[in-house]
């Protein structure tokens, strides 16, 4: 496997910049010749991962959300990382999610990521941040070239 081309972005954990992450995802996916529908799916998945970081990672503080887009010949890998509060992955429960009625989104973020991307891996532990790694295969026509 050849080394991927990497595009990296760091945004603050505030809602204003989730759209910026989405634009970057859209640009990278466009360069990889994904279909319009695939690009829209990727935008939502990235946005959901970033929204989770914005809403839950750092409590009332502002931290960093790091995104890495790794461009392989046949697929795109996207990693969204924060160094925030994390949560107990064993119980699949975010310690912040249930306690704040202002948080919006119905908890559908992970559902969307898993429905719209080919693979989703969630790594988190309390006090050690969260890493979401997602992949999506490029359209078959491009992969066969």
């Amino acid at each position: 496997m050849t080394e991927p081309i990497k595009v990296e972005l760091t945004v603050p954990s505030i809602s204003d910049y989730v759209g910026v992450a989405r634009l970057t995802a859209s640009g990278v996916a466009n360069r990889m010749k994904f279909t319009h529908e695939d690009i829209e799916d990727i935008k939502i998945a990235v946005s959901e991962a970033c929204t989770n970081a914005v809403q839950y990672a750092y409590g009332d503080n502002i931290g960093k959300v790091n995104l890495t887009f790794s461009i392989y010949d046949t697929y795109l890998e996207i990693q969204v990382r924060d160094q925030g509060l994390g949560f107990n992955i064993e119980t699949k429960k975010d310690p912040n999610a249930a306690s704040d009625p202002e948080k919006i989104g119905l908890g559908l973020g992970i559902v969307f990521m898993k429905s719209l991307m080919d693979t989703v891996d969630y790594q988190s532990s309390e006090g050690n941040g969260t890493v979401v790694t997602m992949t999506k295969k490029v359209p078959v026509a491009r992969a066969s070239l």
Binding site: I44, T51, I104, G105, L106, L108, V111
Partner: peptide
């Protein structure tokens, strides 16, 4: 042009 679970949450509420 775009909606995700946040927007759906507002509509559902």
């Amino acid at each position: 042009r775009y909606i995700d679970s946040t927007g759906l949450g507002v509509i559902a509420n």
